[in-house]
Structures are given as C-alpha cells and as structure tokens.
Nucleic acid binder design. Structure first.
Length: 437
RNA sequence: GUGGGUGUAGCUCAGUUGGUAGAGCGACGGACCGUGGCUCCGUAGGUCGAGGGUUCGAGACCCUUCACCCACCCCA
C-alpha cells in the first residue's frame, strides 16, 4: 500500500477543523492589531535561509530539505558535486517562516525609507529533516507574525501581549502557560558578551563536555542550554547577559518589561534563554505549556539586523511563531480539544426509492438557499437514513414519501424535539432557512 | 546521527510453556415491514506489517527488512 512520507500527516476531519479554527482565531485577533495575511513560497533559495537563520545553526546545517529539479540532480550525482550551481538553482523547503517573509519584504520594499511599519501574519507548513517524535514532525504547521519597521519597545510588548491573547482565545487557562523573556543584546554589545562567554568556557574547558567545548567557537551562548548537569553548574557562574547589555539595550529591555507589567502579563526572566536562530537581537521570548511534554509551543523575538542580512536597508523587525501540532497536544493535555464537530446539516430522506427524484429536487433547492444538505446515495432504508442523518449531525430531517409527493408537501422533523410539521414543497427551502437562522 | 519500544479485524487491544485467531467499541442488518440517538438480538470484516528460516505444525522462536512510536540533540 502507498504510504505517506515519514514525519508527515494528512490533515482531515476534526484535526483539519482544528487547524482551520486556529487560523480563524489568528485572522480575527491579528487582524484587530492591524496585521495582514501573507503567503510566501514553500521553497526559497538556500541563501535566504543561510543568511537569515545563520550558517552555524542546526536548522540550516542539518535540518533543511534541499530541493533540486530532476535534471539538475542527475547532473549533480554524475559530477558528485553541487558546485557550479547558480544561487537560484540551490533551493530548500522553508524550515521556518521569518526568513521568507523578510525576503519578500526586501524584494517588494514593504517598508520604504521613512515608511510606516508593515505588519504581516502567516499560517503555513514548515519542513525540517528531523527524526519525528511527540510534537515534532518533518512537515508541521506554524502561525506567525512579522512586524517590520518598528524599533519602539512598545512593539515588542504588544507582540507578546497579542501572542498571549492568542493562546487565551485558543483555550489555554492562565495557569497553563509559562512565558519566558530575555534580551540578547545587539550589534553594539552582543559580540563583546559573546566573547566573554567564549573565554569563560575556554577557561573551564576541562570541566565541560565535548559538545560545550565545540559550542565555545560555534555558538557559546548555547552552552547555557546544555543538558549536562555539570556543565550547567559551571555555566551558573558564567557572565550573564543582563550585566553586559549596552545602555540602549538595557533601557529597551526595561521598557518592554514596564509595558508587560502594565498590561498584566506574567513572565519569567530567563537570562539563559537563547533562541536557536541567529537573527535574534534584543528581546527574545518563548512560551512553554505546563504539562503535555511538548516543550515550547511558541517563541520569537526582535531581529533588527535581519533585513540587512537579506540584502535590504537597515530595518528593525520583531515577530513570533507558534506550532499548531504542539498547541493541539498541549491543549489536549489540559483537557481542551481544538477539534470541532462536523457542522450540523439538514438531511433529506425518502420513504422509498420512488421518491428519489423528489429528494434530488429538494436538496437542490435547499443548497441553493445556502443550507448544508445531506441525503442518501446508497439506497438505504428510511430507518437507516435516519441513522445517517444522526451521524451527519442533522438538526432537521426532511421526509418525502408517497403521501408528501402526492400532496406536494414535505414533512420536516426536528431531530432533537421530534416535532414534525408539513410544509408545502414550494416553501421548503424558505421554511428550513428561516428555522436555521 | 544515537538509544529504547511497538506492529494481530475500521479503532483500542487480548492471545497462556509453539497446535493454523478472540473481546470491547465501531460498521451493517433486525426487534410487525414510513422515522434516528437508549436497549436487546444477529451479521460481516483479519495475506496476524513484509520476506525468509527452525518445526509434523508459528501470531507466538530465529534472521532480514519496512513502517510507526518514544527519548537524546535541536526546536514550534
């Protein structure tokens, strides 16, 4: 039997409705904050991700699905190298949303010199070549926002407020989430801090794991996240970012916190919070679901240097992304289901096959009146048709039998009260539509 | 990439020291034949993931393979 690709899922039924519900909530909430929807291509040039996400990150180094045309791939296999390919021939499936949106912003000049900020949101599939496990797929879905051209710390705070509001609308209780924030500094202070941490690790190299020694050169800040207990102990004495922020970054961070306090947003400051994508500057944040065992269900931050990395003019930016699959798991762990029932409908039944044509006419009229209508297409008995009506969540059942057809009427049964009324066929659609309204 | 686990009816699973498969739920049908959700009765569904081996005989044992799940890493 044909099989789906590892780590991918078919979205259908209640699960599909859950994803749609999430995007509906996003459209409404983000729309009220002035965000417009954007859809960027699922494939981009590799360089778009390398420049944005960072060459040293795991996401870029080993998790991107590279894409080549068949002919190109044959040539590469023959020559044993992808050298000589033009940049636009080197493509990858997007592993996250920000790089592509920022690329689109550069290309379409969304934020012209002196122009107003651009606020965008998206709901798309992302692709990462990881081993699947709980809350981790190779093709998964994210909803995210990007707010470009707004350096004000109010933007950071509003982003976080909107994110927390989003979780609330999806059904998370106030105690079900933990928001963590941090500042990573900027081009003025991060390099020096990074060097301090690098030096610290090198000074304690003999006490730390191999991985952390490697991290010293590649991404020293990541050593704070090491799972090795001893490394954690050592890193507890490492210089913290808060004492090493430049004045501008310190004030920005303080202002963000003041705004969050005013909005009544609970947060935990985590000086070791280091997001895995290199483009972040200053404010970073992450949201964890308490229980459910899926870890982070959303995160984001400021990326004031990213537009330049993608070849645009210096333009500040901030955004976040949340994972649909993980949110569904986390909510389920808290006893909340995102999955909706099949919407209710009107079922048209016939007492015997002689009335099949009348059923056809009635369904036609009902659907033209905008009513979600179901009928039998297997020649089932009337009893069985009623069972089907139940399965389809019918609120009304229209019955057409010999008597009804003879008198030009229809029997309309209310499925919950069992009340039945006779309605002239010519008024059926209007009658049903009125009762559903 | 590393480590652990599981693959038996549509679903969740049981299958005892090897004797060619069962339950619950679901589906379908029926309970005086133009009326559902409850109850009762009945019916149908399985190349036991795939291939090979040991054996008189394997769902159970061995090998190979595929798929999925979980954990590490990293992240949503």
């Amino acid at each position: 039997m044909a099989q789906k690709v590892q780590g991918t899922e078919d979205l259908f039924g209640g699960y599909m409705r859950a994803w749609q519900h999430m995007t509906d909530v996003a459209r409404e909430l983000f729309g009220s904050y002035g965000f417009d929807m954007i859809e960027t291509p699922a494939i981009e040039q590799v360089d778009t991700f390398v420049h944005g996400i960072g060459e040293s990150t795991d996401v870029v180094r080993k998790e991107m699905f590279r894409v080549f045309s068949g002919a190109l791939l044959d040539n590469m296999l023959e020559s044993g190298s992808e050298k000589g390919l033009k940049p636009r021939q080197r493509m990858a499936m997007r592993p996250e949303g920000t790089a592509g949106v920022v690329r689109a912003a550069v290309e379409n000049n969304f934020v012209p010199q002196g122009g107003a900020p651009k606020k965008l949101w998206y709901a798309e599939a992302m692709f990462r070549g990881e081993r699947p496990q709980k809350g981790r797929l190779r093709q998964f879905h994210q909803v995210g926002v990007e707010w470009l051209g707004a350096p004000d710390p109010a933007a950071d705070a509003e982003c976080i407020i909107m994110l927390m509001e989003f979780y609330k609308h999806l059904g998370f209780g106030p105690s079900g989430l933990r928001l963590m924030i941090n500042s990573m500094g900027d081009a003025a202070c991060r390099p020096a801090y990074r060097e301090k941490v690098r030096q610290f690790i090198l000074d304690h190299a003999d006490e730390m794991c191999d991985e952390c020694r490697e991290r010293a050169e590649i991404n020293p800040l990541r050593a704070f996240d090491c799972k090795n207990e001893h490394c954690r102990e050592v890193m507890a004495d490492a210089p913290l970012v808060h004492q090493n922020l430049c004045d501008e970054c310190a004030e920005h961070y303080a202002q963000v916190k003041r705004y969050l306090d005013e909005a009544g947003i609970a947060y935990v400051e985590d000086p070791t919070l280091v997001r895995g994508l290199d483009y972040y500057t200053r404010t970073v944040f992450e949201v964890e679901a308490i229980g459910g065992g899926v870890g982070a269900i959303g995160g984001g931050g400021r990326y004031d240097g990213l537009m330049e990395l993608e070849g645009g003019k210096p333009t500040p930016g901030i955004g976040f992304a949340v994972g649909f699959e993980r949110i569904a798991l986390a909510l389920a762990a808290q006893g909340v289901s995102l999955e909706g029932d099949e919407p209710s409908c009107v079922y048209v039944a016939c007492a015997s096959p002689e009335q099949r044509d009348a059923v056809f006419s009635a369904t036609l009229a009902l659907r033209q009146a905008g009513v979600r209508t179901e009928a039998d297409y297997q020649g089932r008995s009337l009893k069985s048709q009623f069972k089907q009506a139940d399965k389809h969540n019918a609120c009304l059942c229209v019955v057409l039998g010999a008597d009804e057809v003879a008198s030009g009427s229809a029997t309309v049964r209310d499925m919950s009260t069992h009340e039945q009324v006779s309605v002239p066929m010519s008024e059926l659609a209007a009658h049903v539509a009125a009762r559903l309204a």
